[in-house]
Design a protein around this nucleic acid. Sequence first.
DNA 1: CCCGACGCTGTGAGGGCGCTGAGGAAGGCG
DNA 2: CGCCTTCCTCAGCGCCCTCACAGCGTCGGG
Lengths: 218, 218
Amino acid sequence: MRLLVVEDESRLASALQRGLQAEGFAVDVAATGPAGLDAARHGGYDAMVLDVMLPGLSGYEVVRRLRAEEHWLPVLMLSAKDGEYDQADGLDCGADDYLTKPFSYVVLLARLRALLRRGAPERPTVLAVGDLRLDPARRRVTRADAEIALTSREFALLDYLMRRPGEVVSKTELLDHVWDASVETAPNAVEVYVGYLRRKIGRERLETIRGAGYRLAR
Amino acid sequence: MRLLVVEDESRLASALQRGLQAEGFAVDVAATGPAGLDAARHGGYDAMVLDVMLPGLSGYEVVRRLRAEEHWLPVLMLSAKDGEYDQADGLDCGADDYLTKPFSYVVLLARLRALLRRGAPERPTVLAVGDLRLDPARRRVTRADAEIALTSREFALLDYLMRRPGEVVSKTELLDHVWDASVETAPNAVEVYVGYLRRKIGRERLETIRGAGYRLAR
DNA sequence: CCCGACGCTGTGAGGGCGCTGAGGAAGGCG
DNA sequence: CGCCTTCCTCAGCGCCCTCACAGCGTCGGG
């Protein structure tokens, strides 16, 4: 785990550095606001310990800019101010945690661990087959970066097919999984919807295997 | 946003509930460890405020079990114990934050906001989508720098949608997270409020995905 | 080449889904 | 007590999706 400590008071900075290194972290130190901001932007750290009172740029301003640039690394803010509004302000600027000096080293460590545990947000999954892309969360389908409008049934059908590219999927399987199993639906409905899909995603993409089902070309 | 408060002291519990509801959260309360654990497991909450001293199961034990079962909802722990090791223990059991009683309500709110931000895939302090900006701390919404007056329900709805810009959010998900789960609400209420929001933030901003939900255009 | 089975598609009906205006219930405030 | 605000239900309406149907095309076997 790589940590960035931004602290101008050199004794505290090196004490932190040594202590955290002893815990097995790789620790870099920056002594000013601008230097810290720069390091945080380009350094690929897993978390940051950030003092509020800094030369050049305040800690508040550093987080605010980081967040504005869409850098989401966890930030633990350190400050001598223990007023409730100081704390609230720091958190509302985008810090993830706030500790007042003097602080307990044990607590700092525990809070850092909690922050690192949360880590970075997970990436959304996107299904991709050829130049087709389907994003289940956004319910969005593109073909060569051009958006395709699908109805809800069409979307469900394509979703199912894209999860088994290159496989033959039978009409009854589609009826079971894409359609409501409790409602009796004629197999012809599948043919109809395959037709709709072909018009939208390209005719050649969806082969008919006569007597067996359909296959989405990989 | 749905919150779970687990606190056995009924005066504090209801004070918290009222205060947080006034902020636009949907709040459920549990009074014992087992009840809290159960609610957290099945409730689909966005975060949890958890007292340590509880009948039945301690707060420590509640988080520990939740994490063991791979439930990752953000937990803010409340305790009367302010020893550094108590705090470290709470965090190391899996809590994300730790506040000692008596606590400042302002700080609790700011820490809760930080926690909710961290849980979401993107984590700005002021949510911005297109020319819309929403400041959770100040409870203000502007569109192209013009302030928009929203009722508390409208605000909560927009807040939830702006945390997932571009994603499709279903009506039932909205009912679960924006409305109070303990009250049975008709899905039509969502449609009504979407209508209100559209009049205020612009019709085209909030698409209907028929059969799936709504999507806030990025 | 013929024939039957299977698959495709244009048409149109029905119904589900979502939108809206009206209004009642509940709470805050003077 | 009455006014205002907010929340939410209800009922009506309109539209788009869904799917059955029927006629035609296509494929493959004999």
